[in-house]
Amino acid sequence: MKDLAVKREISPKSIIYYYISKIPRCMILMLIGLVIAFAFSIYSVNHVNSIFKFISEADLNVGLTSKFINIFLHNITVALIMIIGIV
């Protein structure tokens, strides 16, 4: 029996039309994301004092460079493990 599949050529016009037809959906999703991000930013600005209440001034002034170096080395280690995992 013959193969009845219809082969359709893809023209540049149809490709452009396909992507242009997806623009409204992408814009709606982007606007929803922006509204959610704006709402979370307002929430976080209003509650920033309660979030960082446990940090005292002594923690901020003493040992800041050693904490930075520890965090930096930890992040480099994690990045190297991720790169090795890809290979």
Results as ranks from 00 to 15, higher is better:
66 S>M: 11
45 V>L: 15
56 S>H: 03
40 F>T: 07
13 K>F: 12
36 I>F: 13
50 S>C: 11
49 N>G: 13
64 L>V: 09
37 A>L: 06
55 I>E: 01
45 V>N: 14
72 F>I: 00
60 L>R: 12
28 I>L: 12
52 F>E: 03
42 I>Q: 13
46 N>M: 14
54 F>E: 08
71 I>R: 05
5 A>T: 15
2 K>V: 15
45 V>S: 14
43 Y>K: 09
12 P>T: 11
51 I>N: 01
68 F>P: 00
16 I>P: 04
49 N>Y: 13
65 T>Y: 10
23 I>L: 01
21 S>C: 01
12 P>L: 09
27 M>L: 11
33 G>V: 02
8 R>G: 02
47 H>P: 00
15 I>K: 13
4 L>T: 14
68 F>E: 01
2 K>W: 15
6 V>A: 12
52 F>H: 02
7 K>P: 12
62 V>A: 04
54 F>I: 04
19 Y>P: 02
33 G>F: 02
45 V>K: 15
27 M>C: 09
28 I>Y: 07
42 I>M: 13
51 I>K: 03
63 G>H: 01
21 S>K: 07
8 R>F: 05
33 G>N: 09
61 N>T: 08
31 L>N: 06
57 E>M: 09
25 R>F: 10
45 V>M: 14
44 S>Y: 06
62 V>C: 03
72 F>E: 02
58 A>M: 03
36 I>Y: 11
36 I>V: 15
42 I>A: 12
66 S>A: 11
72 F>P: 00
66 S>Q: 14
32 I>P: 00
63 G>T: 00
2 K>F: 15
62 V>M: 03
13 K>S: 15
47 H>Q: 03
47 H>M: 02
36 I>H: 07
43 Y>N: 09
36 I>C: 11
41 S>T: 13
6 V>R: 07
66 S>T: 13
4 L>I: 15
22 K>I: 05
58 A>N: 05
51 I>P: 00
31 L>M: 10
43 Y>T: 07
43 Y>L: 13
17 Y>Q: 14
53 K>L: 12
67 K>V: 06
15 I>W: 10
8 R>M: 06
61 N>I: 05
14 S>G: 05
16 I>F: 08
4 L>N: 14
57 E>T: 10
31 L>A: 10
27 M>Q: 08
40 F>Q: 06
27 M>D: 05
14 S>F: 06
53 K>Y: 12
13 K>H: 13
33 G>Q: 06
72 F>Y: 08
57 E>K: 08
35 V>Y: 08
9 E>Q: 06
61 N>E: 09
58 A>C: 00
10 I>F: 05
32 I>Y: 03
15 I>P: 11
20 I>C: 04
68 F>Y: 04
23 I>N: 01
24 P>T: 01
51 I>C: 01
5 A>P: 05
12 P>E: 10
54 F>L: 03
30 M>R: 07
7 K>L: 15
19 Y>D: 02
70 N>K: 12
16 I>Q: 11
57 E>N: 12
41 S>P: 02
59 D>F: 04
6 V>C: 08
3 D>Q: 00
25 R>Q: 11
63 G>S: 01
56 S>P: 02
33 G>Y: 01
18 Y>C: 07
67 K>R: 11
39 A>Q: 07
32 I>V: 10
28 I>Q: 10
62 V>S: 08
37 A>H: 04
68 F>W: 03
54 F>T: 07
65 T>S: 03
